[in-house]
Design a binder for these strands. Structure first.
Lengths: 242, 242
DNA sequence: CCAATCCGAATTGTCGACAATAGAAAACGG
DNA sequence: CCGTTTTCTATTGTCGACAATTCGGATTGG
């Protein structure tokens, strides 16, 4: 016998053990992560009912979440045809990275202007700590740390809109970062580059910090792109998960 | 006797005379414009049923549109409390403008690199034409032309993501632009500034174009902000429309 | 054998209904 | 008279249902 969907969704939450997140935001977060990780096949239509069934909710919260993700650029939409996972588009990544570079340069410059010595020291220490424990982290965790380094600087810039946009870009190029991290697991150029950026910030050397940031991003993006072009990166994993 | 809502919405479309736009996108566009023009009282809650009644649709398309507008930064949202019109926040405008400056600088630089001579000539001609007919335009039309000038450059940059972000910023600072246009109706500094930018682009003088763009934006924003701070601008109009 | 046309199944678009929640008003107690 | 608790009302969150549309396969004609 069927229990009401509402009940089952409650049960589901209970089953997830102490996760009292409202279903709306939860659904949004889950779908978002799926899109970030290319868990939908590129360019394939996203079936609303199927997704709804999988997440144990009705189509309403699904559609709301999908609509939001459209404006965030994670998926696309065509009237009467539905939502589509974006394909992996090299030009898109290049464009986003170009934007990212100027925003991150501005970000460090503002942070150098506005952050306190304590803030910058904390940043450097946090990163040093991360570097020291790098081996203990999974690739996913390392990717998250990489992203966090940049986001922390954006926060220190004092410009919340700038931070917001960079976060938006991050979610869209998440996959590229993942490639980089997995590829260079041991080859720790990223780590020293971040360290040097932090040092330049502490020295309040805006031009140097901006240049380091610029190079850091362009090099890693170019590297990731060449990996992609050589077909060495698996874009998505076709899982028959529950 | 009540006709089905679907029918009445069809009738509504027919009544609007040759406007066969689907209701979903139409609703989104209308609400978006309302938000852009601060037709909701700042910081006030947006009542879904009221809005639905006014636009002759059910709450579903309303909510979808509102969700999208949240991610675009035009309105805010709190779980179980609903959607709120953003207040007019000076710091937000300043932050957005700061971002806008770096993006527009990048925009001109890329356009200078990539656009053809014809493209740039067309830009300059179009603007010259606009200037010549400036007196015939309403303030709203002039504002639109101002926005279009910048968007055209963004398109010429060849970076669609850049253009997209600038469009997003534009919708959020639309009100500030409107202030500027209404204030300087006759004082045509904007017109000559745009003209000079176009000329610098034709001359392929990237540094000069970028600098002009930078100054153009910072000056107009600073000017608009002082107008706002002096309380000379009416933020919204309380209309008891239909 | 291929192209165009026509169905029928699958999917989206929108709706009205109901449950859960928040906020306001009323009742209560000090 | 003021602060707290309770009740009530207005609003949001989610759902299932149905209409409109699209897509793929079968059918037909060349």
């Amino acid at each position: 016998m069927l229990r009401s969907t509402r009940q089952s969704s409650q049960d589901n939450n209970a089953a997830l053990a102490s996760k009292p997140i409202k279903t709306g935001p939860r659904v949004y977060a889950e779908i978002r992560r799926m899109a970030m990780d290319y868990r939908f096949k590129p360019n394939e239509r996203i079936n609303e009912v199927e997704l709804a069934a999988r997440l144990n909710v009705s189509r309403s919260p699904i559609r709301e979440a999908l609509q939001r993700l459209v404006t965030e650029g994670l998926i696309t939409f065509q009237t009467n045809r539905g939502f589509f996972c974006r394909g992996f588009d090299v030009e898109e990544v290049v464009n986003l990275s170009d934007v990212r570079i100027v925003l991150e340069e501005r970000s460090v410059r503002l942070a150098i202007q506005r952050a306190t010595d304590e803030d910058l020291a904390a940043l450097a220490n946090w990163w040093a700590n991360t570097m020291a424990r790098a081996d203990a982290f999974s690739s996913a965790e390392l990717t998250a740390r990489d992203e966090e380094f940049h986001i922390r600087i954006a926060r220190l810039s004092g410009n919340s809109e700038l931070a917001r946009m960079l976060e938006g870009i991050n979610t869209r190029i998440h996959f590229v970062r993942k490639i980089e991290v997995e590829k260079h697991r041991r080859l720790s150029t990223t780590y020293t580059e971040h360290r040097d950026i932090a040092r330049a910030m502490i020295a309040r050397d805006a031009d140097r910090a901006a240049r380091l940031m610029h190079d850091h991003i362009s090099i890693s993006v170019a590297d990731a792109m060449s990996t992609v072009r050589e077909g060495l990166a698996r874009i998505y994993i076709d899982v028959d998960q529950i």
